[in-house]
Amino acid sequence: MAVTDHSEGARQARTRSGRDWSDLVSRWSFMLPAAIILAAVLAYPILYTFQISFASLDLATFTATEWVGFENYREILGDRGFWNSMKVTGIYLAWALPIQMILGFGIAYLINVEWKGRSAVRALFLIPMVVAPVVAGGIWRMMLDPLWGMVNWFLGLLGLGNPDWLGDPNLAMATIVIIDTWRWTPFVILIATAALMALPKDVFEAADIDGANWWTKLWSITIPLLVPIIAATFVVRWLGAVKMFDIVLASTRGGPGDATNVVNLYIYEQAFRSLRFAESAAMAVVVLVLTMILTGLFLIGTRRLERSY
């Protein structure tokens, strides 16, 4: 009997093991096509970028010909333009992200009341996001032109002078932030609105019973409950903003001087205009690594914030 039990157990184990194996095969057979495509379209370009960043590139064959170690990295360390573009990108991010987050959540909070047509207004918010960035940059460039633009014509009616939005090095960065904010604040508003609508109503009703005023409810209930969403939205926007390229290309082309020459534009120019592909690959790797480190830090910060609330 014991022998029978044992052999029955072994048979069951073999059957289970066969089932597990078959399950594994069937799972992977579904995943494999996607995994291969992902590897081809994501991993290969990244690995190729790494490879040519450590090599000299033969323009006659477009292949990495000679391993040069960190030579390309040493080259970019001494490239004033690259470090300036990193600084410019930092300035842009430091202004654009907080403004978009504050405006986005602020507007969402203010419009988060029941009123007729709210859905239509929310749909209208999508318009800036679906306009191609190059088109947005071009249209803003026309609107802000001191000679023909309607913005300065309007400011002139109010006696507010004729600012050179795209020609003044300081104002040009502000202009980029304005265009980017116009384009991306609605995205933050949409997420924030959805988050606000999902907040538990009973907590607010309890606060009302306790006599809490709107400020107390905002500071002590709404914001703490929204912290995970705020943090997640910030990370999503950060990853989008760090790729800033097309709006700058269409509106200022990185100028005047190098006032708005963000790092992606600089890398593009070095690669496709100057044909310095190896050095550009090294720059791209530096930017990728820095972005990953900062994103990691933001994610850690997000988790801590979530825990503290």
Partner: peptide, 12 residues
């Protein structure tokens, strides 16, 4: 282009 633009915009 980089350097001429910096001069024309008055940066340097």
């Amino acid at each position: 282009a980089d350097e001429v633009s910096r001069a024309l915009s008055g940066q340097i």
